[in-house]
Design a protein around this nucleic acid. Structure first.
Length: 201
DNA sequence: CGGATGATCAACT
DNA sequence: GTTGATCATCCGC
């Protein structure tokens, strides 16, 4: 592969990613299933996402822009990171419609497993099994080293690296979990057959 | 395996 | 003062 070919392919991938984040949260949540994401080289395949739209009572953006959710109204591809329940951080990627974002809920770890284990061991007494390293939004963010300091950062550039799957993955839509409102929307997406989910589909 | 509980804090009312 | 887009652990079946 010569340099020109490599660059042309990289441009195509970047265009596809730009198209993906230009969609609304549901479209982006679907496009991200099967994609790979790395933060400073640590990451893996996205197997579970959850969509939040502004016209959605469960979304932080539903009541408009505030200090906390300002990143949700940033450019598509912006990272929105917030803290829940006092100790867990959640990593979202802003979608194309203002106030829309996709929560990354689970990864199949592919690279940097030692770094993940080291970070995740701070809360647990023993190093978690590989299946549990990134099975859940709080676990995923901790394993990738994503915290509040990255809120508002551009997730389309360093240290982030996102590679979409070549085709739309085979996935399942199911009711969102962990919410107290609007539980009926089928906006949780899971990679069919994955054993790395936060909970079975 | 399912339900209950405490940890712990940024943002909101 | 209250509230979570959660997790790890403990308890009972």
């Amino acid at each position: 592969m010569d340099d020109a070919g490599a660059h042309a392919r990289a441009d195509m991938l970047a265009d596809a990613l730009a198209d993906a984040v230009a969609m609304d949260a549901v479209g982006l949540a679907r496009a991200l299933i099967g994609a790979e994401i790395y933060v400073a080289g640590v990451g893996g395949r996205i197997v579970e996402t959850k969509a939040y739209r502004r016209d959605d009572p469960a979304s932080h953006s539903h009541r408009g822009r505030t200090a906390r959710n300002a990143a949700m109204f940033g450019a598509p591809g912006t990272a929105y990171v917030y803290r829940v329940y006092g100790l867990h951080d959640c990593f979202n990627i802003v979608a194309g419609a203002p106030g829309d974002a996709v929560l990354l809920r689970a990864l199949e770890p592919l690279a940097g497993l030692d770094a993940m284990r080291a970070r995740r061991a701070t809360l647990t007494s023993e190093a978690p099994a590989t299946r549990l390293l990134c099975a859940g939004p709080g676990r995923l963010a901790q394993a990738l080293g994503v915290d509040l300091a990255l809120n508002g950062a551009n997730a389309l550039g360093p240290p982030f690296e996102i590679a979409l799957a070549p085709r739309l993955a085979q996935m399942r839509a199911s009711p969102r979990i962990g919410l107290t409102q609007a539980r009926d929307r089928l906006w949780r997406f899971t990679l069919e057959g994955s054993r790395f989910l936060s909970r079975p589909a």
